[in-house]
């Protein structure tokens, strides 16, 4: 399988009045063609910031350092473009075209003063040579595809005339307008009811299958991840602490944070058990700990965990975890 996204050693820092917030710290990841990659983490773990940097959507104050960032084999590493205009031109051609994003809040994403039709046509007119007439027909097709009833009348309506679930469908239609190779969905269903959530997730899976695109799904809902994703990255304190296939993460979790997450959710299909919450709260990224970011909440922390960040341990070709316990176990076996 080819990699559609390949990122190595990405760090993002925001200078603020209180100090430098190290939102993303030295992460490497990739997305294979045709797969759904889930990114799981708490608020402030760096999951959205790392994805926004792929799209070139971070504010100008962000300090980005990165060794490699490639999309379909093409260099999109902002550090390799000393000329900001050149980078902007490259990203203009990709954003909303080859790479598209679905945002969390369906109300703030859409322009309340523009008709739905115009908002769906915008990326089509920007990136293809289609005429207005053709773009409108394409928009009608897209609306039918995402399941909006009677698109011919709905296309001339304004966002306030749509419900939350319908608005999220329109956002998906806009993201799909140019058949993107990669769709980044940032908490696409967090604002929605569970019945609508299920419909939207099925829609994302359906369009992925029909267009053979790849999807990055950012979420904190482990149920959503389990039912949709092929591979999962677990982020904590600006780091990817564990990565693996869906089964590796859910059935053989290695990192204490991943284990902790799985023990503080409940499965409604199983008998009730006591939830074991993770004590404490996430680290302050103004002063991230020198060692493992999870050390203060970890029940198995050792001395070294406070001092140094562990290297990623390869557990299988797809499964990697950053935890000193792996090193310790290896030494015990020797």
């Amino acid at each position: 399988m080819d990699k559609i996204i390949d990122v190595e050693k990405l760090s993002v820092t925001f200078p603020t009045e209180q100090g430098r917030v190290q939102a993303v710290r030295d992460v490497s990841f990739h997305v294979n063609e045709g797969e759904i990659l889930g990114i799981v983490g708490e608020s402030g773990s760096g999951k959205s910031v790392s994805m926004y940097s792929l799209m070139g959507l971070l504010p100008g104050t962000a300090e980005i350092s990165c060794e490699r960032m490639e999309f379909e084999g093409k260099d999109i590493n902002v550090c390799h473009f000393p000329d900001g205009k050149e980078y902007a031109a490259v990203m203009e051609g990709i954003r909303g075209n080859r790479m598209a994003m679905i945002f969390q809040d369906p109300m703030t994403f859409l322009n309340p003063t523009m008709k739905i039709g115009r908002q769906i046509c915008e990326p089509i007119l920007n990136h293809t040579g289609l005429s207005k007439e053709e773009a409108r027909n394409k928009a009608l097709e897209l609306m039918a595809m995402v399941g909006i009833p009677s698109p011919e009348t709905r296309i001339d309506q304004y966002p306030f005339e749509f419900s939350g679930g319908m608005r999220q469908r329109i956002i998906i239609a806009i993201a799909l307008a140019n058949q993107p190779r990669l769709i980044i969905a940032d908490e696409p269903t967090t604002a929605l009811d569970v019945t609508i959530q299920a419909q939207v997730l099925e829609l994302i899976k359906y369009v992925k299958d029909t267009m053979n695109s790849s999807v990055i799904l950012i979420t904190h809902d482990l149920g959503v991840v389990a039912s949709l994703c092929d591979r999962i990255n677990i982020m904590y304190g600006g780091k990817i602490v564990e990565t693996g296939t869906d089964r590796e993460i859910f059935y053989e979790p290695n990192h204490p944070y991943t284990k902790g997450l799985l023990s503080c959710i409940c499965n409604p299909e199983e008998d009730d058990r006591e939830l074991t919450p993770i004590p404490g709260s996430p680290p302050d990224l103004l002063m991230p700990p020198a060692g493992c970011p999870f050390v203060d909440r970890c029940g198995e922390a050792m001395k070294i965990c406070k001092l140094r960040m562990p290297e990623a341990e390869t557990l299988s070709p797809t499964h990697r975890s950053m935890c000193w316990l792996n090193e310790w176990k290896k030494r015990q076996e020797k």
Partner: peptide
């Protein structure tokens, strides 16, 4: 039936 189940095999 719309609740997402946190188990990859059952959930999918």
């Amino acid at each position: 039936s719309a609740i997402p189940i946190p188990d990859p095999i059952r959930g999918k």
